[in-house]
Design a protein around this nucleic acid. Structure first.
Lengths: 168, 168
DNA sequence: TTGAATTTTCAATATTTTTTGAAAATTCAA
DNA sequence: TTGAATTTTCAAAAAATATTGAAAATTCAA
């Protein structure tokens, strides 16, 4: 396979995966493109390669910058902004995990904790059963949240790797 | 808070979380409703409580049955089908993880493995860099896939719990 | 400063996904 | 068998999400 064809296939695959996990296709594709580019790319280059609009390219880049998984790169004597991807997969995967935990899991955890408390007092059979169910889900979610936090906080991914080996 | 209000809040929260992670809102809400119900529910009861159509209720229930996280329950002398949720969160969370791994991660892994091989031969600097990037992502994804497989395969969730304690 | 280059915003449009609901298929008690 | 009850299917409609592109805002070299 041609080098460019491999890159394209990677970009497409990555975009499709992102879509299935609630990540915008363009965002995933822009990250993929930067991952397989050895030099920094301008917004125009990204627009052209992925055939997406300026607005889309701009918003996707901002989001990836917010996630902290791509960086701006200044090129001397050029006014344009250039972008490079964080290539260390441990770094960026953990950043995404941490970000999604904070934005999506933690608010749910807060509701679960509230419901856990609110259902504690009801002594009817129905109330007890509901409390048990919510308690279990709250506990599980809390453990998952803690796991992500601790792993993401550790330098590099050695910890999870260690865990992986433990399971294997 | 009223018991019914707590249930409703749980259902809504669960539906919103599902949406963010690529799980259909109705599917997530049907699971949530069954989780907080102490008795089996018929399709009609689900339609009425969630105010969704018969088609939607039916398709959501089929999907949850496919996932193996809800069960059919026969009630003597009643022709209707009734449904109950698997309440053990470890059981159903691991089933979902395993199912999504198989449906979404494994196909990507197969493409990554193919690209890893296809980029091996190119000895240009660009080719080497691309191969390294794809190799890293392939390895990472493979490890993640293996982790899910092993944890899901273990009886209950003691393993991950053990891992969690290791990190804490 | 000025104004050309560049980036950002966001209303309008397009696309994708979800949901509906009624018809068709299936099931099963009588 | 029969036919009423129940489930399934799926084309059409609605809703949600993503994308465009041009105008507005910003930046910065001269």
């Amino acid at each position: 396979m041609e080098l460019q064809a491999s890159k394209q296939k990677f970009i497409d695959t990555w975009g499709a995966l992102g879509t299935e996990w609630g990540i915008n296709k363009s965002v995933a594709q822009v990250q993929a493109l930067l991952l397989v580019s050895d030099n920094p790319l301008s917004t125009d280059a990204i627009m052209e390669t992925l055939t997406i609009s300026r607005g889309n390219a701009n918003m996707s880049l901002r989001q990836l910058l917010d996630y902290g998984i791509i960086y701006k790169k200044v090129i001397a004597g050029d006014r344009k902004e250039y972008f490079v991807a964080e290539k260390d997969i441990w770094k960026w995967a953990l950043k995404i995990a941490l970000m999604r935990k904070q934005k999506e899991i933690d608010p749910v955890l807060s509701v679960l904790t509230e419901l856990e408390a609110a259902t504690k007092k009801d002594k009817s059979a129905e109330g007890k059963a509901l409390h048990q169910t919510i308690h279990d889900i709250q506990t599980f979610t809390d453990q998952l949240s803690t796991l992500v936090e601790r792993v993401a906080g550790s330098t590099r991914g050695e910890l999870l790797l260690k865990l992986l080996k433990l399971v294997m």
